[in-house]
Design a protein around this nucleic acid. Structure first.
Length: 336
DNA sequence: AAAGTCTGCAACCGCTTTCTT
DNA sequence: CAAGAAAGCGGTTGCAGACTT
């Protein structure tokens, strides 16, 4: 039954690794491969447990590890992935070549998390913080109004699968500025079961520094108007909850992020509708007004796919409504 | 310059999942 | 199929170096 213990933990070294130990581990793995961590310390002459060796190798010594500061693109990718995956550091690391889960986790806790908090965004929910508001009343009103308005019952259904194919680092977005939304109108299904997907959009965060303030103020002003005009059944508090405030960093600005799920529905003529209620269609250009360039390119978008949709349906949907295709290398099962 | 405080990150801990016997 | 170890993973800690007073 079972296997024998991996190692006798008494007398094994702990703490920081020396250069000599690193060299021993590296040389051993270069010759024999990572293989069996249980027997590795004994065979390589290291006074460490296998677990410690594995950690040292995967987090530090592995030759394909990219060291140094995270780029802006990497940081944005982490934020977008965290929005969808939460604290699944290994899943996030799998999508950032050369970065380890430990490194990403550390970077999140020491940099990104603090930055989001500083900017008034809850790093867990990625939504504005309401520390000073009465959370009970917000939750009560938001849950009743929003679920009705946004067909949210389909979104919170455990069958709903999550897919975020359009990330900040996605070449399909960066190379294709046609990824924006015009006033395409299509009928929207009122039956949640017929709903294939809902979409979350994030407008571009990169603008020349001298234009940032004007752009931000303009967008914030227009966003407020847009919501007050369109979200007719929402009270002020839930409207506020749907608006992510403008965030500032040293050299860039994060323009208002729309983290709402706008429902959408496929149609025969490849047009596209964003709508938050049965009767109030959004004019997307008015959501993302652009005095600088028109239309506003989007940095990222997340697609929430209905769990009953097949892979073919999803792919067909994306091809139809967005000017990109899901890469062949993308594995749906791995992503979930 | 010294002491205290803060920050970043490597490494560990403990829990869960996967695999082997 | 069950037991138990290995592997994987996320949370936490401890310490070195940077920064502030």
């Amino acid at each position: 039954m079972g296997r024998s213990p991996c190692c006798d933990k008494s007398g094994l070294k702990k703490g920081p690794w020396t250069q000599e130990e690193d060299l021993k581990l590296t040389q051993y793995i270069q010759i024999h491969g990572p293989g069996n961590w249980r027997t590795l310390p004994k065979n390589s002459g290291l006074q460490r447990c296998g677990k410690s060796c594995r950690l040292r190798w995967t987090n530090y010594l592995r030759p394909d590890i990219k060291r140094g500061r995270f780029s802006f693109e990497e940081e944005e990718t982490i934020i977008q992935l965290h929005k969808v995956l939460g604290n699944k550091w290994s899943a996030i690391a799998a999508r950032l070549p050369g970065r380890t889960d430990n490194e990403i986790k550390n970077y999140w806790n020491t940099h990104i998390r603090k930055r989001l908090l500083r900017n008034g965004i809850d790093p867990v929910t990625h939504r504005p913080r309401h520390d000073l508001l009465d959370m009970t009343s917000i939750l009560n009103s938001a849950s009743s109004n929003l679920s009705n308005l946004l067909n949210i019952q389909s979104l919170v259904n455990p069958q709903v699968l999550r897919l975020a194919t359009l990330l900040a680092s996605s070449s399909s977005i960066q190379q294709n500025n046609e990824f924006f939304l015009n006033n395409h109108i299509a009928p929207m299904s009122q039956n949640p079961n017929q709903q294939i997907a809902s979409v979350t959009f994030t407008p571009s965060s990169r603008l020349p520094s001298n234009q940032l303030w004007d752009e931000a103020h303009h967008m914030q002003k227009n966003n407020s108007q847009c919501f007050s005009e369109n979200m007719v059944n929402l009270n002020d508090q839930t409207s506020q909850e749907n608006l992510v405030p403008t965030c500032w960093t040293d050299d860039s600005i994060i323009l208002p992020h729309y983290s709402d799920q706008f429902t959408s529905q496929a149609s025969e003529n490849s047009t596209f509708q964003l709508s938050n209620t049965e009767n109030n269609n959004f004019n997307v250009d008015s959501i993302f007004p652009t005095p600088i360039s028109s239309p506003t390119p989007l940095d990222s978008a997340s697609i929430f796919i209905n769990g009953s949709s097949s892979e073919d349906e999803i792919e067909s949907y994306c091809r139809k409504h967005f000017k990109f295709e899901i890469p062949e290398s993308f594995e749906f099962d791995d992503f979930m």
